[in-house]
Design a binder for these strands. Structure first.
Lengths: 348, 348
DNA sequence: TTGTACGCGTTATCAT
DNA sequence: ATGATAACGCGTACAA
């Protein structure tokens, strides 16, 4: 049994850690020699001194101070990931892939979350500004335009993923949202659905707008007139997706199909459908944005629009680390048909 | 010539960012004055100079170099979160709360992932060692004992969450896994189930072991003899949860209930059940470890063991930032009964 | 109240 | 091949 507490582990922990001078002294050489041993390519060292130095390093368990190094040379590249909500499987996957990509560049990732709250976002940006972060990958809330500009002016390269915002043109990696909205609607139209409800993100966000636009285009191409009353644009946080579902179901001429284009509202919306006893796939066909393992497990399995998250992450990291760009990268999403979408009931 | 040389040629955009000396010169004061203005409490400044300094700071958009600051004073506290898999909703929630708690301490979080791979973990730890990280919160894979020790010896405070590992005693915040396993089994026993299948994590992990132990204890207390053939301990990654499900179903005397105590294998296991046409809640009662919004959406809604993730995160961050501790904190988990568990079929 | 000057730990330059 | 030393940018005794 080991007792808790354990302060008997010596004061050596507390003593100042060894500096390059300590090592030099212990090895009987100069600090320059030590530096040369530790930074290969900076000069030649005899194997005898190399050995003594390495021994001293090992002995004193010496680690160069990052701060001193950065002060002398340039600062190491740093990357922050400012996400709306890590709890959302879509963003969790994004985080996973971004960390993975960054790792291959030998860069670590600082994770921050905004919870879709511009105030929290502002605080995060201030922190980043102070810490002189090199690059930021973010899913912006929509506000803080000046703050973003400050950040860029301070020399940080800013990359937005998934969304764009108004008033600030950053490098962006986004899904072809217009096409995605179009694809989802088209899929349903081909199944014979005429009235399609839509739950999308707020119209202040690019994802919110574009997916709705694509949806409308598909309808128009199909000879239908988009009905604004079928489109509900609701915030990312909260339960308004569910309320929108109820509103749609409670109309006189309820839709036979539903597109939930707001990632964050999928669960809430589906829950409400279940609560209302709607038989998904029969009474109502449903397409949902963003794939995750649970969508296939759902009864019935959900037809989803799957975004190529790995690709998004790779582009984002590349753009972020290459300091100079203001590029716009778009990736295509795929519609994955599953059991939640079926033929429309015969028209009455 | 008056003034600094060659500033006429538009090189200012490219030129190194302003230092405290530049500000001092621009404001017509000393560097000390600038520092005093920027670090309140370090000395008194006349309001007139303060103004001029602030103006100059604004004008040159001056930001103190973190490296220089840290070199002079102590290093800022730093925190790394080394997770097995951010994609797992349980860990995603953990990440969310850890970031949140850290924020309240004005500390940012470096996110790293191991994908349950000791090799990747080793690389991460090496990186952390080099960067002299202050604190680490981790879900260890089980290996790399020496590496963890190196890290601690380097002065990093290490906190394990969710799991403990053998050979290295770190501060740990874990769920009462033994009790949780006990609770899940007890719930099923009270519903009349006698043969209960278990899918747990590997026996090399504390969560894997303890939940199984608790399960066995419940059985024994109930007058039953634990049947080892009903317990499958499978890795966190891969699809072996599904295989274990099949194995359990294919025995001569298949269980009437199932506990999936391996968070990472829940989806895979449930998918296999669906594939096999098992009617969850009727043919087979199912308890699953770790709650997330989708479990309630499942048909039928899944009975879950819910861990108090927020509490775990809070404790973890507190322990991590308080450098001295080797404490063990345990939190209780709750069983949330839902529709996936029902009365056992009458014994034949 | 203000300014001068030193040191933090490293690396690079220049002698030797 | 090796050693002395000057920066790097900041904070702060200490002196004025």
């Amino acid at each position: 049994m080991v007792g808790a507490g354990g302060s008997q582990y010596g004061r050596q922990q507390v003593s100042r850690s060894a500096t390059i001078r300590d090592v030099a002294r212990a090895a009987g050489v100069s600090t320059a020699a030590v530096s040369r041993v530790l930074n290969p390519g900076s000069g030649a060292v005899s194997s005898s001194t190399r050995e003594r130095v390495l021994a001293a390093v090992e002995d004193l368990s010496y680690r160069p101070r990052t701060a001193a190094r950065e002060l002398r040379g340039g600062a190491r590249p740093t990357l922050a990931l400012v996400l709306a909500d890590v709890t959302n499987p879509f963003f969790a996957q994004l985080a996973d892939r971004v960390v993975w990509e960054a790792r291959s560049h030998d860069v670590t990732v600082q994770l921050m979350t905004t919870r879709e709250d511009p105030t929290l976002e502002a605080e995060s940006l201030t922190a980043l500004l102070q810490r002189r972060i090199g690059s930021v990958i973010a899913t912006p809330t929509g506000g803080n335009v000046e703050r973003w500009e400050d950040l860029r002016e301070a020399g940080t390269s800013v990359v937005f993923v998934d969304r764009r915002i108004e008033g600030f043109t950053a490098a962006t990696v986004s899904t072809a949202d217009e096409e995605s909205g179009h694809a989802a609607a088209q899929h349903l139209l081909r199944l014979g659905h005429q009235r399609i409800g839509v739950i999308a993100g707020p119209s202040t966000t690019s994802t919110g707008r574009d997916r709705v636009t694509g949806h409308a285009r598909a309808l128009t191409e199909h000879g239908l007139t988009p009905d604004p009353s079928l489109v509900h644009q609701v915030p990312f946080r909260g339960d308004q997706g569910a309320d929108a579902v109820s509103a749609l179901l409670d109309t006189e001429d309820p839709p036979t199909a539903l597109v939930v284009a707001n990632t964050a509202q999928v669960v809430s919306s589906m829950r409400r459908l279940a609560l209302r006893g709607v038989r998904t796939g029969q009474d109502l066909s449903v397409v949902v944005f963003d794939d995750n393992p649970w969508t296939e497990l759902h009864t019935p399995a959900l037809t989803v629009v799957r975004q190529p998250i790995g690709l998004v992450a790779r582009h984002a990291v590349t753009l972020a680390l290459r300091q100079d760009a203001r590029d716009q990268v778009r990736v295509r999403a795929d519609l994955v048909p599953r059991a939640s979408t079926g033929l429309a009931p015969a028209a009455s």
